[in-house]
Simulated assay, not measured.
Amino acid sequence: MYITITAQKLGANYSQSVADYVDYLEKENQLPDIESDHEFFFNQKEDDISPEVVIKEIDANTTKLKKIEPKFYSITVNPSQYELKKLQNSTEALKQYTRELMKNYASCFNREINGRPVDVSDIKYFAKIEHQRAFKGTDIQVKENQVYATKILQLKNEIQKINRGIIEGSVRKIEGEIKSLETNAPHQQNGKRITQGMLKEGNQSHIHIIVSRKDVSNSFSLSPGSKYKASEVEMNGKMVKRGFNRDDFFQKAEKTFDKNFQYQRNFVETYQARKDFIKNPKLYFSAIMGLPASEKALAIKMLRETGMPMIPVVPFSKAQLTVKLIKSIQKGIHAALRSGSIGI
């Protein structure tokens, strides 16, 4: 599970309307060959919410917010392939999980509204499930294929010049070189070189959640971007609680999924494992080596499937955990975390 919370920006400025982001989330519904049904927005109690309603509700819920402050946040929830396999009805199960997740989200605010803790009923949000995902220019597969893509483009330009009589050469020979480059590119999908914009194969279901900065009454600011986990500050002569505990939210998100779907999480998928990796990579790899044989085998399989470099494989003894090896694998794990394959 990989979850991100971001304030939406347009360049250096915060978006003053959610319209552009809603349009972006509608892109899958506009695909002519989409296999899944049309997906509508939903919230804690309602389904089949139109994009027009989302825009109207979020844009109107910004009282007293300045232009330099975020008006809304985007939460993106990316289950791994292993987690998605556990869901029998992907759309309905993900909706169920989203609604439980937003209860977790509300509980992680160190705020009070009218003398009580923040509840999910205070959160104004709209969520949408998408079932397809395209390769981006930042994906490791696209980046490592770029050398081949550049050379192929150069050769195609040469063919155009030959056809226009600008230069001399053999079109057939160049086409053979292009075919060889297409075949030898390191990252392939269904026999084709992976390129930016190509749809990823397999179940790519994920969740986008738009959350208003203000509560449903448009009176209280609830910022998950707060730099404070929990503190109090004096405002207008009164002590006011503030803060959002992201660490607690990520842990609850994982536990909620496991409980709702009886998911047996491997060590490398856990939030604690990611924390160990960031703070102490050697401890992380040592923990993998200490797993029971079957769990260790699955952990290594999961890591290999992320595309991270195994040189030659994840080490099988603590003695093999050299600084050089850790650094070489560390880069790959960061890419895996960003791709949504492992971690939160």
Rank of each mutant, 00 (worst) to 15 (best):
residue 81 Q to V: 05
residue 69 E to N: 14
residue 86 K to G: 15
residue 25 L to Q: 03
residue 87 L to A: 09
residue 96 Q to K: 10
residue 28 E to Q: 06
residue 91 T to D: 11
residue 60 A to K: 08
residue 37 D to I: 02
residue 32 P to Q: 08
residue 24 Y to W: 00
residue 44 Q to I: 11
residue 18 V to K: 02
residue 66 K to T: 09
residue 102 M to T: 10
residue 79 P to C: 09
residue 26 E to R: 02
residue 24 Y to I: 02
residue 91 T to V: 11
residue 33 D to T: 08
residue 53 V to Q: 03
residue 38 H to S: 01
residue 81 Q to R: 14
residue 50 S to T: 12
residue 63 T to K: 15
residue 75 I to M: 08
residue 93 A to V: 01
residue 13 N to V: 14
residue 66 K to F: 04
residue 67 K to G: 15
residue 101 L to P: 05
residue 46 E to D: 15
residue 57 E to M: 05
residue 45 K to T: 15
residue 15 S to Y: 06
residue 78 N to F: 11
residue 82 Y to K: 15
residue 55 I to M: 00
residue 66 K to P: 06
residue 77 V to Y: 11
residue 63 T to D: 12
residue 87 L to G: 09
residue 74 S to D: 07
residue 100 E to T: 06
residue 38 H to L: 08
residue 41 F to P: 00
residue 78 N to G: 08
residue 81 Q to E: 15
residue 95 K to D: 13
residue 53 V to A: 05
residue 53 V to L: 03
residue 97 Y to L: 05
residue 76 T to F: 03
residue 99 R to L: 11
residue 47 D to H: 04
residue 34 I to T: 07
residue 68 I to L: 11
residue 73 Y to D: 02
residue 62 T to V: 07
residue 77 V to N: 05
residue 92 E to R: 13
residue 45 K to M: 14
residue 29 N to T: 08
residue 12 A to T: 14
residue 98 T to G: 04
residue 55 I to G: 01
